[in-house]
Amino acid sequence: MSATLSVGVQAADFDVGAELAKLEPLGGGGVASFTGVVRGGNGLTALELEHHPGITETMIRRIAEQAAGRWPLLGVTAIHRHGRLAPGDRIVLVAAASPHRSAALEATAFLIDWLKTRAPFWKKEYFADGTSRWVEARAADDEAAKRWIEQG
């Protein structure tokens, strides 16, 4: 099965409906997706996403290719934003089209788990009181990514 890969690294927002609509006509019968959004609260005013511009797209494309090699997918979409975002702004979209819902759902979980641990992005949080801090990597994210290795 040959999958159509669509990868984007951009400052601009993306249209979730339009992106999913591109996957629907591929003949798979099912499209699964995950959208990551800037979480508000705790006085957060902005989230700055830094990335390694020279290699980010290559890294994300590789993750998409791995998903396509592992599940019977007809399409994979992975879009990640960079720059300064506000609470409620979209950060990332991953989606997969497949004839099998389990493949589409599992591939989507794989894509976001691996993006979180293997794509060169770093988040910095800015707060209303003027402070800021780099988000620290979470062990739970590493564990989530690891399950895809243990499963083979």
Binding site: G36, L49, H51, H52, G54, I55, H80, I91, V92, I112, L115, K116, T117, R118, A119, P120, F121, W122, K123, W134, V135, E136, A137, D141
Partner: peptide
């Protein structure tokens, strides 16, 4: 991506950074 023990011989560009936190 490289590990601590990865040789740097022949490398033209090396990036050093904290653990990634995207997604």
């Amino acid at each position: 991506f490289a590990e601590p023990g990865t040789p740097i011989a022949g490398a033209r560009e090396i990036a050093l950074f904290p653990p990634v936190t995207g997604g």
